[in-house]
Structures are given as C-alpha cells and as structure tokens.
Lab assay of single mutants.
Amino acid sequence: EPLWIRPDAPSRCTWQLGRPASESPHHHTAPAKSPKILPDILKKIGDTPMVRINKIGKKFGLKCELLAKCEFFNAGGSVKDRISLRMIEDAERDGTLKPGDTIIEPTSGNTGIGLALAAAVRGYRCIIVMPEKMSSEKVDVLRALGAEIVRTPTNARFDSPESHVGVAWRLKNEIPNSHILDQYRNASNPLAHYDTTADEILQQCDGKLDMLVASVGTGGTITGIARKLKEKCPGCRIIGVDPEGSILAEPEELNQTEQTTYEVEGIGYDFIPTVLDRTVVDKWFKSNDEEAFTFARMLIAQEGLLCGGSAGSTVAVAVKAAQELQEGQRCVVILPDSVRNYMTKFLSDRWMLQKGFLKEEDLTEKKPWWWHLRVQELGLSAPLTVLPTITCGHTIEILREKGFDQAPVVDEAGVILGMVTLGNMLSSLLAGKVQPSDQVGKVIYKQFKQIRLTDTLGRLSHILEMDHFALVVHEQIQYHSTGKSSQRQMVFGVVTAIDLLNFVAAQERDQK
C-alpha cells in the first residue's frame, strides 16, 4: 500500500453525458421521505430548503428570480454533511469501515464536522487534520463531537509532509485500522450531490432553472449537481466560483495573481482535486475576500440567511453572472454553511477592521482624538531585521541585547519573508524542534498583521487588541530589464502597544 495517494490523481470516472444510468458502476440512493420521529440526527441530513432572495437581486438590477439552496440546514450545519454520511455509508457497505475503526480526514473543517457527527452516532474514533487558518468555532464544535484535532501550517503546499493532507496520511500509516475516506478522491463525494442535492433542486424548481452558481473546494458539490442538471435540464448554465489565490478556475489566465492566501474558508485549493470535473462548468468567476464577507453580511442583514463567507462569494458572483438572465428565468445559488463557524471572524466588526474589510468610518461609535491620525505620526525608528541564514542562537542574543521581542526576517534585497519572535524561538528550542545552530528560517511564521503608514491609529489599535505587534510595510514598484514591473513589500518598522501608548501619553502631556 502506498504511503500516500495524491489528492489530485487523474480521475478514473467514466461518467458521460447521455450515458444510461443503468451502466453506472456505483451504488445510487434515492431521496427517502422522513418519518415524523427521526431514529437519529443523521436522518436530518439532506432535504434542505430552497429560499427566495428578495432584496439583493433587485438591489443589483437582476431581472431573474434568485433562489438560495440553504445547505446550513443540514444536521452539522453545512453541505459537507451529505458527503460525510455518504462516504461512511459506502465504506461500511463495501466492508472497508468496521466497528471500532478510526476515521482520519484532512479538511478545512466542515467535512470534519460532518464526519465527527456521523462518527459520534456510529461509534468510530475520528481524527481531523486541518490548517491553522480555520476558525476556532470549527475546532470547538469538533472537540465537542469527540474528534481529535491536529493543526497544520496554512501556507504548507498540499504535497508537503507538513500539509493537512501529508499529516493525515502519516497518521494513517501509524494508526492500525485507520482510514482516510479522502473527500478529494472519493466518488461518494460527487455521488452524494448527484443522487440527492441535484434531485432536490430539480424537484423544488419543478425542473425549471436557467443558471446554477456554486463555490468550489473539493469540487464534489458542483460536479455532482452539474452532471445531473446537464442530464435533466441541459439549458442550465453552470457557474463556478473560485477565490483569488486558488488555481481551480479555467482558463488558467484567471488564476494569475501574486496573491497566495485568502481568508474565506472551505473553497479554493492549490491543486485540482480528483473529484472535480471542470468540463461540466460553463464559466468560472474569481471572487475576493472583501466581496465575500460584504455579501455574507448582506445576506444575514437583508435576507435573514445566517450563512458563512463562501455563501457571500457565491452570491457576489451570482449578481454578476445572472445579469444575462431575463424576467421569468431563474438562478439558484448554493449557500454551503452557517455563520456559526465564523462568529469571531467576519461577523465581528473588530475582525473586519483588522483585516481591512471594514473602515473605521463605517462604525458610528465615538472615537478618541488620536483615532484618525496616521501611523506615520508615530515617528517610528528604523527596524531591526535579520536574514533567514542567521542562526536561532545568534538571533536570540541580538533580540535580548537590543531589547526586542520580535524581528522581521528579510532577504538580501529587503523583501519581507516573515517574522521571528523570542517566545516562538525559545519554545521551539525547548520542544526540540530546532537547535541553536539551525537557521532562523526554520522558525519563520507568517501569521502576523501588516499595516501601512497611511493607515489610521484606530486601525492599529484594533490590531493591537488581539496581537502583540504589527509590521509596518510599504510597497515598492521595481522595474526589470524586460520592461515588466513587480510590486514588493518592504519593512518600514515594527509597532507595539507600548509605542502607541507612549505616543498618546506624550501628545497629551505636551497639550497640557
């Protein structure tokens, strides 16, 4: 057995438009009618409502009807409940999964919650491996369901041993009777949507819809739904939504950006999952974080739909894509998950301010006199920076000697690579993860907040409520011999709460 199987392995699926269902090699399930009293909570997966979006479509000038398939009504709160249950049931049916076995899954959280929910009911041990950027709410729900959680670096490539995929496979090879159901490759993922989600949409719309818009992560949702719609409703256009920084969209030119990270969760990847059939997507749109969270908040405030950030991405694209539809036509959007997962993220004004998705003037509360002053007023001194090749031991000596707790790590040209902190280095040394002679590049981390000289002290204040420091950066445009230009970030300084307090105190003292 291989040590790991690539999540982007070539698909062996034989589905073709027009091929009889009787030739399918898979076990198919028909939607079942729910009894009045459910035998367990797993029976509350599927049969989610279709809700008309009344205000947002009109606000953006849509002539067509805009409908939302509300997947956050599933038992675990997301569309991923469907595939989690289906993968477990299919693994039980073919004898792969037996009582007492362990389920391991690399996930952005929602599939993990679905699997942990099913594992709690069915009696399996469950280990979820997820990147650090995923919300604390997801972690809390997983723990409450009895799952064990392993976190991995957000910026690790999918084929790196440190990625959530790599760590999951390492655990599988170490733990007896453990299984990775593997949402990236498992046919049960798109089949769950082909058999149930798509049929529900067709039934709820009486077979009449002209466009379907869905955000894409593993691709199982859009693949399964689109294949069924292509068979039953061939005139329906399928629109895929991919965040900026991901590479799922086609044509490839759409993916060209210097951005590699994004805040919206559960969609987009740096590889093409095996289950994603991009041939059934008629057109791709890219979405960005700001519009995703703005539209998610709009869905909550104006439509009462308590959905997550990827739902915002989907609707932001839908109001663009559906401009081509006329009166009497219908566009369906998939709202994948609930706001429950993001209470401390985009639902929080403070978080939105820190990330730059909300401006101070958007909030009406009274601010102190210094709130709208610029960061450049602080008069920061030149920063202490270190090269990635310097040793951890030497870096600790320098920081202690100069009285700093942290320093930016830059390359020879001064471009920011990340940050090192005294606390992080000492804990890594004590844990045996690094040696004093190791290069400081081994303990770089990139989960820090950046701020510009033109940003306000109010925004800085919000950042420092949650973080010990902020890195002050400025952009530099560099022209190359080819005539092309590129933008790079340079370090201007490091600012802490002490710097802000000293500035405010000094100004008030001078005024007296």
Rank of each mutant, 00 (worst) to 15 (best):
I239Y: 08
I239P: 04
I239G: 06
G240K: 08
E244Q: 10
S246C: 03
A249Q: 05
P251C: 04
E252N: 13
L254V: 06
N255A: 03
N255P: 05
Q256W: 13
Q256K: 12
T257P: 05
E258V: 11
Q259I: 13
T261N: 05
Y262C: 02
E263A: 12
E263T: 07
V264G: 00
G266F: 02
G266A: 02
G266T: 01
I267W: 05
G268P: 01
D270W: 00
D270T: 05
V275H: 00
R278H: 02
W284P: 00
K286G: 00
N288G: 12
D289T: 01
A292T: 11
A292L: 02
F293M: 03
T294K: 04
T294G: 12
M298W: 08
L299A: 04
A301P: 04
A301N: 12
Q302T: 10
E303P: 03
L306F: 06
G309N: 03
A311I: 06
A311V: 07
V317Q: 08
V319N: 04
A321H: 15
A321T: 11
A322R: 02
Q323W: 14
L325Y: 02
E327M: 04
E327V: 07
G328K: 05
Q329T: 09
Q329R: 11
R330I: 09
R330C: 15
V332A: 14
I334R: 07
I334E: 00
P336V: 04
V339R: 04
V339C: 07
R340A: 02
R340Q: 07
N341P: 03
Y342R: 01
M343T: 06
T344P: 04
K345C: 02
K345Q: 06
F346C: 05
R350C: 06
R350D: 08
R350T: 11
M352W: 00
L353G: 06
Q354G: 05
K355W: 07
K359L: 10
E361C: 12
D362E: 13
T364Y: 15
K367W: 15
W369Y: 05
W371C: 08
H372F: 14
H372L: 15
R374S: 12
Q376R: 14
Q376C: 13
E377Y: 03
A382D: 03
P383S: 15
L384Q: 08
T385F: 08
V386L: 15
P388D: 04
C392T: 15
C392K: 11
G393N: 05
H394K: 12
I398D: 09
I398E: 15
L399S: 03
R400H: 11
G403R: 14
F404N: 02
Q406M: 06
A407G: 15
A407F: 13
P408Q: 13
D411L: 09
A413S: 15
G414E: 15
V415G: 14
V415R: 10
I416D: 05
L417F: 15
G418C: 09
M419H: 12
V420W: 00
V420I: 14
L422H: 09
M425W: 09
S427V: 06
S428M: 06
L429V: 13
L430Y: 13
A431D: 15
A431L: 12
G432K: 13
V434I: 14
Q435T: 12
Q435L: 14
S437N: 14
S437P: 05
D438V: 15
K442W: 13
I444E: 12
Y445C: 09
K446L: 13
Q447M: 12
Q447P: 13
K449L: 13
K449T: 03
Q450I: 15
L453F: 15
T456P: 12
L457K: 04
R459Q: 14
R459Y: 10
R459D: 12
L460A: 06
H462W: 12
H462D: 11
I463E: 09
I463K: 13
M466A: 12
D467G: 13
D467M: 08
H468C: 04
H468Q: 13
F469K: 09
F469W: 12
A470N: 08
V472R: 04
V472A: 15
V473W: 07
Q476L: 15
Q476W: 03
I477V: 10
I477M: 14
Q478N: 15
S481I: 11
G483E: 15
S485W: 15
S485V: 06
S485Y: 12
Q487L: 12
Q489P: 12
M490S: 14
V491G: 14
F492N: 12
V494N: 04
V495C: 14
V495Y: 10
A497S: 13
D499L: 04
L500Y: 07
L500V: 15
L500K: 01
L500R: 02
L500E: 03
L500P: 15
L501F: 09
F503Y: 06
F503G: 03
V504A: 10
A506W: 09
Q507Y: 10
K512D: 10
